[in-house]
Write a protein that binds this DNA or RNA. Structure first.
Lengths: 353, 353
DNA sequence: CTGTTAGCGCATTCAA
DNA sequence: TTGAATGCGCTAACAG
């Protein structure tokens, strides 16, 4: 069993009877004679030597840490992203530092400040709201940043976005094919990025199919949670009688499902239901919920790869990746066991990430 | 707008026309004359100075980071814990570093090694399996460790555990009160810590109530996931006809619910169902699932506080916190709207955390 | 191939 | 109260 006390390069060098430079070289795999390497390794083992991260960082400027900041750790979709980011960066030798900011842009600006202290080599950020001030702070930041989400065109930052317009279109198209006409929409807050994007997707899709998107068919929950979803769904069902409902995420969909069930409405017989994000809860729900897959895992993976690329070449040109959504058809949108389990994509070539 | 270039103490000192020592003092709130402080602060602002984390760490030995390692980032119960740990340590000025090891003890041992590189001041660990080797590594570690989970008595580490035996007892007791007799059990892998604990809780509880815990009433899923739960539940229902089922966690419970529904069995009319962990999915399920609350949030909070305490006083005696479970009664275990929504606890004083 | 040495940026001791 | 100087542990440039 190796020593438990903290040891340093100098101690190892002393024990091996060589210079600390030699120890450093051997341990970093640089050329050295076999015998010297032998002795160094023996000494290092005996002392249980582990290099000190902060000293190395101070010298090299690298921390081997990547920060991941997300608005809501409670939302499964972010967990999915995080999981994937972690997987990719870990394989490249980086640790993931989780920085849960709230939804507030101000907090994220604070994060940027502390990032400049140098505790991470880069930041992957998935902001819910994108204030002008945050954009400025992002621009001014000294270290690599990858944004997951849509960005103004003139912001020169690596980012991966998803075509949520196309996502909603998939959902509406599918519902129309099932013979639905009065398609309701349970959105999240419209002052968020996803909120506005999905609303415009809904309006566009409805127009495309010549369906009326009347005001009574639309509600917005106060946030993207189950609880807010229950209230919003209740409001919707109080003011109209849709034969199908699209929800802005799966949590809202589960909430809507519950609300429907409690009112004695059957899913999908009376009302068809489609969620978004294709998280586990869509699969777990009863009936299982058809959901637009916005590629959370793919987005996480793409973002992580963009980060690794930028770290490898800080001068490289800005790169934007667009993820195409697909539709996972489940029980909630298809009558009596016909066609459930399908997987529908827009047919474009998926952007390689 | 402050300079975007990286600045150092020396630069600030130069600009303010003082020594770097003075700058350091002012910025760390140590006594200095008003005018000097004034000038230092002005210069620091103008340069957008932020202290470098690694240099400070190298000097002080503190990183202001706490690592949190968990077997399965996909399990909501760990997300809940993590969330709470993050909240508590953040308030004390620490960042949370997420280290997702797999379920494999070997990976966790690797983590301990790299921890000694000094990238974190402490580790909060919630192991699924606890090999002798891991215990040894834990013991040998140089930095503070808090374990979430049950530990052999002779291991001198701060830890917070939950009385899962009592938890199962709550579930069985509740089911018996509902008039159920043939109580089945869907467990996770028995070679895990929770798996063995919950199995013995089941057996003890059944014996306590004079019920037969025959072999055909018990199955073990290959892991604690939905998918494995489906298979296990199918097996259980193939080999016996329970009038109630206790599941080792909520994911397994949702899976069992689905399996029951697909076989045309009604919950709770035909079969009552109880899960464990009291995660969101229990609430979201349809019908909502009664669940034993093993206090994930409370455990996270307690663990974080133990860590802060140990950091503040490394020489303090080992402390163990025991969390008492409670039962959240929902639709899945109570016939026709009587008594759902109750919250049952064993009546012990809850350990203050 | 190996040793000597100079910082990386900061907190801190010691003088003044 | 303030400044000068030291060293945390390491890597890399340079010298031998």
């Amino acid at each position: 069993m190796p020593e438990t006390k903290k040891s340093t390069l100098a101690l190892v060098a002393e024990r091996a009877g060589v210079s600390i430079a030699s120890v450093s070289r051997v341990l970093n795999g640089q050329p050295a004679s076999v015998q010297l390497a032998e002795r160094v390794r023996a000494a290092a083992d005996a002392l249980g030597y582990v290099p000190d991260a902060s000293a190395r960082t101070l010298k090299t400027g690298r921390t081997d840490q990547i920060a991941f900041a997300v608005a809501d750790v409670g939302n499964p979709v972010y967990v999915k992203m995080m999981h994937e980011v972690e997987r990719v960066v870990a394989k490249a030798g980086y640790r993931l530092v989780l920085s849960s900011t709230g939804a507030d842009p101000q907090e994220q600006i604070g994060l940027l400040g502390s990032l400049n202290r140098g505790f991470a080599d880069g930041l992957v950020l998935s902001p819910l709201r994108l204030s002008a001030e945050l954009v400025d702070a992002l621009r001014a930041s000294r270290l690599p940043i990858v944004i997951i989400g849509t960005l103004p065109e003139d912001v020169e930052l690596d980012n991966v976005r998803v075509d949520s317009m196309a996502g909603i279109m998939l959902a509406v198209d599918h519902l129309v094919q099932q013979g639905r006409k009065r398609i309701g929409f349970v959105n999240g807050p419209v002052d968020t990025n996803p909120g506005t994007a999905r609303l415009s997707g809904y309006l566009t899709s409805m127009a495309e199919f010549g369906l009326a998107a009347t005001a009574d068919l639309q509600v917005a929950a106060s946030d993207f949670t189950y609880k807010a979803g229950r209230k919003a769904a209740a409001r919707l069902l109080g003011q109209s009688s849709p034969d199908a409902i699209v929800c802005s995420n799966d949590l809202l969909a589960v909430a809507t499902l519950k609300e429907l069930t409690e009112r004695g409405l059957r899913v999908p017989d009376d009302v068809a239901l489609v969620g978004m994000d294709n998280t586990d809860v869509a699969e777990l729900a009863n009936p299982s919920i058809t959901s637009v897959d916005l590629g959370a895992a793919r987005r996480g993976k793409a973002a992580a790869k963009l980060m690794l690329r930028r770290l490898a070449d800080p001068a490289a040109g800005v790169k934007r990746v667009v993820i195409e959504p697909t539709l996972s058809v489940r029980e909630s949108s298809v009558r009596a066991g016909v066609g459930a389990g399908q997987h529908i994509s827009p047919g474009y070539e998926e952007v390689r990430a």
